[in-house]
Design a protein around this nucleic acid. Sequence first.
DNA 1: CGGGATCCTGTAGGATACTG
DNA 2: CAGTATCCTACAGGATCCCG
Lengths: 95, 95
Amino acid sequence: MLIITMLGDGPRRFNELKRMVNGVSQRMLTLSLRGLERDGLITRTVTPSTPPRVDYELTELGRSLLGTVSALSAWALENQGEIQKARTAFDASVQ
Amino acid sequence: MLIITMLGDGPRRFNELKRMVNGVSQRMLTLSLRGLERDGLITRTVTPSTPPRVDYELTELGRSLLGTVSALSAWALENQGEIQKARTAFDASVQ
DNA sequence: CGGGATCCTGTAGGATACTG
DNA sequence: CAGTATCCTACAGGATCCCG
């Protein structure tokens, strides 16, 4: 979902995504990108040059997920305070 | 997300949810329910009787997720064929 | 730059047994 | 019925090194 979101406004390069996700290992980013590519949600375009350049971009199918994903993201943002409160209360009640 | 959906049309009991999810171990169902309860998305109501009865129900916060979750679910249903095709094609192209 | 290949470890989570 | 408590292991995923 993070990757779908980051690709929402245009293609991105590998290290660009790596920086945006912040904390993801290159291994997991690669695996995630491969999975999304396999599912037909993103495309991988290699431009052979020095240095090499690889762009990732949403397919039409991928773009069709943007709306729902950003709705979920918006929900999370709007309600993170509420959830934090619930957690603190719950943890206190269980000691 | 599955649990949120199952609770969408009213409260459910533990074993009822267990049957609905189909394949989930009671351990993971318990852990998932605890997590959702901790986050304030569901409530857990114990009715002491023989046999004991425990009902799970969406909170208002939980219900506020229903729309987005079912949108995602609908997307998955609509596009599962497309995704299967993409996977087969991808796997074939990689051999 | 954009990865693949290895090695290694923590832990998610299954299976099973017990309980109020 | 609705869970806890244990034990155990496969595998997710980090760290590191290498490469065109």
